[in-house]
Design a protein around this nucleic acid. Structure first.
Lengths: 213, 213
DNA sequence: ACGCTCACATACTACTTGGTATGTTTTTTG
DNA sequence: CAAAAAACATACCAAGTAGTATGTGAGCGT
């Protein structure tokens, strides 16, 4: 099974150039895609353009691979908890929780994913880039569909109540993705701290703000 | 009362250059701030750079004024419904609803507000720009504080339940702001359609996803 | 030890773009 | 109605940047 076939695997292959993806993600997060020059990324790597263009044919391709790696980690975090014997509401909670944690622990990558969604109107010049962009959007929709499916199960098994599954899922994912805007790890933060925050977020999403009668 | 004193009023004054703000907002929404050239904005206006630089000394100032106008409309939408005799939970609902509607009806401006500030967090060059940026962040915080204050009232009067007011408000506002990513008006959309969507969103935020026992 | 390939660094170019300096036309004002 | 100012348009430049072409040293198979 070559990694070429799987649209979720960036071609980091055997080479350890994941460093490039991380450095690029950090730059993109801090300054945005267009404000980041290839030299900026290279400087953060302690290298020069040569290294980056050795692995990526263009800045756009670099961005795409950062996006791919971010989405890959999203799936990696969520899929293990989406199936099971529990009622769908509990599984959905767990998925939200995992996604929130993944958001915090891969902040730079996920910030690029979030930012990349806005760039839907990207100046996708070449036909190949357009196809790649469409592919990324498909992956994004598939990710959202994971949540929708479990939410529908919840409506059927009675553990979930909502006026509109699609809207409710968009609301919940929006709330979590919004982490990339306001969340920044504090200096001596632990895994526990992040789990506490994730639990609060999931609680807000699942229980809402209205006090029970 | 000169509009110079009020940090929320862009200096659109008597001149009708609100057109410039709208055109800029639309460009920024579609391509992002850095990918948008002044010529792009001018082209959308059916004009040239000269017109824009006649009113704005730099691209950064233009961005700032777009942001100001977006925030001004946010306050305008929310403040009328935040006070009253009803329990805080109802007022908070109304605020969320108004904010969601404002989001949809000023999509371009609000998209810039949402995606804008964090892109500039690191790039503010001149001291004056840094001060303006700090001012905008203050306005942003003030807006969030509006919601927090009413949410606290709700905790005290018993109409709201949450494990953490600050997090709950960020979750709710994130959900609404996320509209700027996925919401696009359909061709023959009416005000009613938008109100229905807003109600669904508010319902998700206030009631959560868990079915009542 | 020799060639060959990989993994970069260096040097350079073509093009974009923010900003300016300077016209030109319309509106306002005295 | 003349003159001044406002409201633009035109022409231009300096700076930054994506991408390329080429150099170079280290490893590696033979």
């Amino acid at each position: 099974m070559s990694s070429e076939k799987n649209p979720l695997s960036p071609r980091i292959d055997k080479t350890g150039n994941i460093d490039i993806l991380i450095a690029a993600a950090e730059c993109f997060m801090e300054q945005g895609y267009h404000a980041t020059s290839i030299d900026d990324v290279a400087r953060r790597l302690g290298a020069t353009k040569g290294r980056i263009y050795h692995y990526y044919r263009s800045k756009t391709e670099l961005f795409f691979d950062v996006h791919r790696e971010g989405m890959r980690r999203n799936f990696e975090a969520v899929t293990p908890v989406m199936k099971g014997p529990e009622p769908a509401a509990r599984r959905l909670s767990a998925m939200f929780r995992q996604h929130a944690l993944s958001m915090m622990e891969n902040l730079a990558l996920e910030a690029v994913v979030v930012q990349g969604v806005e760039m839907h109107r990207f100046g996708a010049t070449t036909p190949e880039q357009r196809r790649t962009l469409a592919e990324l959007m498909t992956v994004r929709n598939d990710f959202e569909s994971l949540f929708k499916r479990v939410a529908y199960e919840g409506v059927e098994d009675g553990s979930i109540r909502t006026s509109d599954v699609s809207v409710a899922v968009k609301v919940a994912l929006g709330a979590i993705n919004w982490l990339s805007i306001w969340y920044r790890p504090r200096p001596a933060e632990t895994r526990d701290d992040r789990e506490i925050l994730a639990d609060k977020i999931v609680d807000s999403i699942m229980q809402g703000l209205n006090a029970p009668d």
